[in-house]
Design a protein around this nucleic acid. Sequence first.
DNA 1: TGCAAATAGTTTCATTTGTAACTATAACTT
DNA 2: AAGTTATAGTTACAAATGAAACTATTTGCA
Lengths: 151, 151
Amino acid sequence: MPGIRKPDHAPLELERFVPYQLSIVSNTVSQAIADDYQQRYDLGVTEWRVMAVLARFDGLSAREVAERTAMDKVAVSRALARLVAAGRVRRETHSDDKRRSVLDLTPAGWRIHDEVAPMARQRERELLGQLEPEEQRWLRSILDKLMPPEA
Amino acid sequence: MPGIRKPDHAPLELERFVPYQLSIVSNTVSQAIADDYQQRYDLGVTEWRVMAVLARFDGLSAREVAERTAMDKVAVSRALARLVAAGRVRRETHSDDKRRSVLDLTPAGWRIHDEVAPMARQRERELLGQLEPEEQRWLRSILDKLMPPEA
DNA sequence: TGCAAATAGTTTCATTTGTAACTATAACTT
DNA sequence: AAGTTATAGTTACAAATGAAACTATTTGCA
């Protein structure tokens, strides 16, 4: 039976500490989503995020993908290498600027996207389903406020 | 100028997708806290979490630490190895069950705890400070609801 | 023009992390 | 008591991640 500490050290109560709670909730739901597709499609979280932005915006460069996914350029480069090798993303070189790539989902990439996206949405529904409609609205507006400007 | 995709593929809008928002907000604030102490004390996030629970509950075993930090036992074992080597945690063997360890912060561990805990609290205040008091209450009660039962 | 600085992206290497296997001790079953 | 199963914790190996150096191209400017 462990003892409760004296209060003069003012220890943190992890389970009521908001950054800790955010981390647990975030990891739990992200893991649940990842479990849906990781093994099934041999697709990592970073790769899925890249596919998700390319589904919305085609012709992006790798740097633009990095901006929109809050990933760094090395992570994007590695994810793209795998996606291109797997035939899920097409990579061409920009005609005016030969440093830049021009990225698109291939038909195979679209097929995977169209299967994974509904699963991700379903998990989001399950998460929000634990809340009352009023709470769902508060959570959304609070997260909008807390999101860093760049992201 | 990238084009906007046709809607028939129903691409995910990452920046409004709640699991994604949670991940960004959580990583941003966790990183800010970690930046406060990582280099300064040569202390990783996992190590800090272990110290935080030992500050509240002394004499825990490694497994109990793992439960209370939502970390797996390997991560706890590694964090403890570093903490013990650095003289921040004392590890003894349980008298009745020689498999179990009995863990406590050392005076050096307490000194670090007493410096880091206020910094962490300050970062939490800064995060919540972006919100109205009403929003802060909603966020707290929503996170309480979303926290998985074990954690 | 020609040279320095900036940008896009990749590669390399070290560190971190995750999974599985392993050791040691204790608990359960008969 | 003997043998099986479960538990606590560590170790070993592979995969993921991060930081820095590197290549190629473009931009800024003297």
